[in-house]
């Protein structure tokens, strides 16, 4: 069921993301895959480092993938999309909100495509709706900022809401084959912040 709500900009401190930034080494070449739409803010945050950033804007592809009839077609579409980016092995993957909008098969296919592009020590940073029974009808856009040195994500979300899947950590691990939860925190806005790594 879709409910109309006032447009919302929600913001929250994200301690686990802050720890990722704190751990960047001085002369490290950092390869970041952003499943969301890249923003000026993330570029600014990374600008003092040697960085490759691939912004994949996956949310904009979802409508096309979800209407495909068979799992094979969806897997092929996802694989072709990944190929188009010619990804380097990633240190970080930013996955803010996207997993809320994927069903179990698509989440498994995403993990399958992602794993070959991960360095052994790669970290996947994810935000998931957890406490709230509703979420924006379409994936939010996120803006990163640092307030008093602490990482902060603001979400620009659509004006309608739908039921939230409220995936639990255990359920997510079950769907994201090949990945494990390294750390997770319930944030003050009711979202769950995750760091996943290779299982």
């Amino acid at each position: 069921m879709i409910k109309t709500a006032t447009p919302a900009v929600r913001g929250v401190q994200t301690p686990l993301l802050g720890r990722l930034f704190d751990a960047i080494k001085e002369d490290q070449r950092l390869v970041v895959v952003d499943f969301g739409t890249g923003s000026s803010a993330i570029l600014e945050a990374l600008q003092t480092h040697r960085v490759r950033l691939d912004a994949m804007a996956m949310a904009e592809q979802l409508p096309g993938w979800t209407v495909l009839e068979t799992q094979e077609e969806r897997a092929d579409a996802l694989a072709n999309y990944f190929k188009g980016f010619q990804l380097e092995s990633a240190d970080w993957v930013l996955c803010w909100g996207l997993l809320n909008y994927l069903d179990a098969p698509l989440m498994g296919q995403l993990a399958q495509q992602l794993l070959p592009h991960l360095k052994p020590q790669a970290r996947i940073h994810a935000l998931i709706e957890y406490s709230s029974s509703t979420m924006p009808a379409t994936p939010a856009r996120y803006q990163l900022s640092f307030e008093e040195g602490k990482a902060h994500l603001s979400m620009e979300s659509s004006s309608t809401t739908i039921a939230s899947p409220r995936y639990t950590p255990k359920r997510l691990e079950g769907m994201l084959t090949g990945l494990k939860t390294e750390n997770t925190i319930l944030l003050s806005n009711g979202m769950q912040e995750y760091i996943f790594s290779r299982a």
């Binding site: 890249g38 000026s40 040697r50 960085v51 691939d54 912004a55």
Partner: peptide, 13 residues
């Protein structure tokens, strides 16, 4: 602004 695609900001690339 927002973007999709690849940006490489590495002076040694």
């Amino acid at each position: 602004g927002y973007f999709s695609g690849t940006i490489d900001m590495d002076s040694e690339t």
